[in-house]
Amino acid sequence: MVTTTALTALEEKLLAAAGSVPDPELPVLTLAELGVLRGLRLASPDRVEVQLTPTYTGCPAIEAMSADIERVLHEHGIPEVEVRTVLSPPWTTDAITAEGRRKLAAFGIAPPRPAGPAGGPVTVDLTIRCPHCGSTDTTLLSRFSSTACKALRRCETCREPFDHFKEL
């Protein structure tokens, strides 16, 4: 989904730079690992256009992400940076890379399982592994946690509460 045409070497470099920006709310993940960068195009030697997609419709982090991308690309010598928000196709937790999932678990957040079809029934009782002790005996405390993208669970083995990046 990143771009339809091949990137030039410079565009590749700029995309990697934009992708290395940490997520403002989950700084263990980069934007590339979160899968929210949709494309980058050098419109002229001075101007670059970036496509960014929000995780959730109301996610307030999108403005901080845009500002961080602009700053990083300015540092790479591009004076004009335009970050556009695109909605389609909708972001899904399936866009989080394997490395991103590993980092989430290491950070204490249970990574999302593969997402079901859009709008389908939400499964709430499939096993989610505790990121602390690895037990599969965990229970849902609340469908919504510190941010809209996470649910709050508790491990029945080690008794620790933890966040689960819920499927979208």
């Binding site: 929000p54 959730y56 419709t57 909605l87 389609s88 196709p89 909708p90 972001w91 899904t92 859009a118 709008g119 389908g120 029934p121 939400v122 709430v124 469908r143 919504f144 809209a148 819920k166 979208l168």
Partner: peptide, 25 residues
């Protein structure tokens, strides 16, 4: 609306996934 071709389709396709959680709640 998500499957229609109107200007509302991209938002509907995105929001319906969040709405599933609201309904489930």
């Amino acid at each position: 609306l998500a499957t229609g071709g109107t200007e509302l389709a991209p938002l509907a396709a995105k929001a319906v996934k969040e709405t599933s959680y609201h309904r489930d709640h």
